[in-house]
Structure formats: structure tokens, C-alpha cells
């Protein structure tokens, strides 16, 4: 892990395009999923996806390899999303919603192999939870995605979102509670 981070740091200092190609391939889905959780809009998430990798190229020398590359990558993406939001509406991450106020969709083609029934069930559940996620404030979505989809530690989430550890804990708890409440309400 540390060895891998050191090699990545060395390659980024050299601005090695082959390394960047590999990293883009490796982190494509995770980064896009994270940006979708922040922005709630696929189009914007894709723009930020490209900007994030350009920023990684330009600021690669700042990655020292002491932490996991993914933590640094998500922090870069987070900062870009915040910058975008500030340009648009200088208040909170909730500025990252659809311009017309519509709920954004997480819906994209599913992958993997399972029985048709399982697939349908899984898809329904995922769609349900994705819809619930869209009703959460962006900072809760971000915390839940980093914690439960990315499996990051609380400290890593704090460094990505640049907030104190207590805030991260609070966001995860509140996010999960709000999601549960929404899902309960939606089932009624």
C-alpha cells in the first residue's frame, strides 16, 4: 500500500502520462460515483471528473505518498466541486443540485451477473436507496458514500471533506438516520 502510494507519487512528480492513464482506468467508477454523490448530476459530475484528472496532473507533485492515493484524489475532487459550487452559489454543498430543482438520478446501467429475479430485486432496492440519497443534503451524501461505498476510515473522510472528525461522525449518523426515515416514509 505504502509502496504503491510512493510509486504513484514518483510517477505524478514526473507527470507520467502512462501512469495517469492507468489511474484514470482504475479509479473511473469510484471517482464518478463520488462526484455523483456530491453533485447529484451526471453531466456536472462528468465535467468535474475530467477537471479532477487535469488537476491531478498539474498538482501531482503535491501528493507525497504518505496517504492512500484515493484519499488525495477524492480531496482534489471535493475541492473542485466546492469551487464550482462557490462560483454558482456561495452557501453550502446543497448548491450542487439541478438547476431546475428536479431530483437528479443515480440511474445507470447495472453490471454483474445474477438471476433475473435477484437482479430485479437488487435493482429496485438500489433505485429506492438512490432516490432516498437524493433527498439528503449533499454533505450527508458525501459522508455516506465515502464511508459505505468507498469504505474509508473516519479520519480519511475528515481529510477529504476538510471537516473535524466529530462533524464526520455526526454527518454519517444523521445521514443514515435521515435515509432510514425517508425510506420508511416512502414505503408507507
Amino acid at each position: 500500500m505504502a509502496q504503491e502510494s510512493t510509486e504513484i507519487a514518483r510517477g505524478l512528480r514526473r507527470r507520467d502520462p502512462d501512469l495517469l492513464d492507468r489511474l484514470i482506468e482504475q479509479y473511473q467508477h469510484r471517482l464518478l460515483r463520488y462526484l455523483m454523490s456530491l453533485t447529484g448530476r451526471r453531466e456536472l459530475a462528468e465535467d468535474l471528473f475530467q477537471e479532477t484528472w487535469i488537476r491531478v496532473l498539474e498538482r501531482g507533485h503535491q501528493f507525497n505518498g504518505k496517504f492512500a492515493f484515493s484519499t488525495w484524489l477524492f480531496a482534489v475532487a471535493h475541492n473542485l466541486a466546492i469551487d464550482h459550487m462557490r462560483r454558482k452559489q456561495p452557501s453550502s454543498l446543497d448548491g450542487l443540485m439541478n438547476d431546475n430543482g428536479e431530483e437528479a438520478s443515480f440511474d445507470v446501467p447495472a453490471t454483474g451477473r445474477a438471476s433475473a429475479f435477484d437482479l430485479t430485486l437488487q435493482r429496485e432496492q438500489s433505485e429506492h436507496i438512490a432516490a432516498g440519497m437524493q433527498h439528503l443534503p449533499a454533505e450527508y451524501r458525501e459522508a455516506l458514500v465515502l464511508r459505505f461505498q468507498e469504505g474509508m476510515s473516519l479520519d480519511e473522510i475528515a481529510s477529504v471533506a476538510r471537516v473535524p472528525l466529530g462533524t464526520v461522525k455526526s454527518r454519517i449518523y444523521r445521514g443514515l438516520s435521515s435515509l432510514e426515515q425517508w425510506l420508511k416514509g416512502a414505503q408507507l
Binding site: 473511473q28 460515483r33 462528468e46 445507470v108 446501467p109 447495472a110 438500489s126 436507496i129
Partner: peptide
């Protein structure tokens, strides 16, 4: 959450 299918 883990099975929300988002792919680039």
C-alpha cells in the same frame, strides 16, 4: 448503497 450501479 454498495449496489447502486454507477459506471463511467
Amino acid at each position: 448503497l454498495r449496489t447502486i450501479p454507477i459506471a463511467a
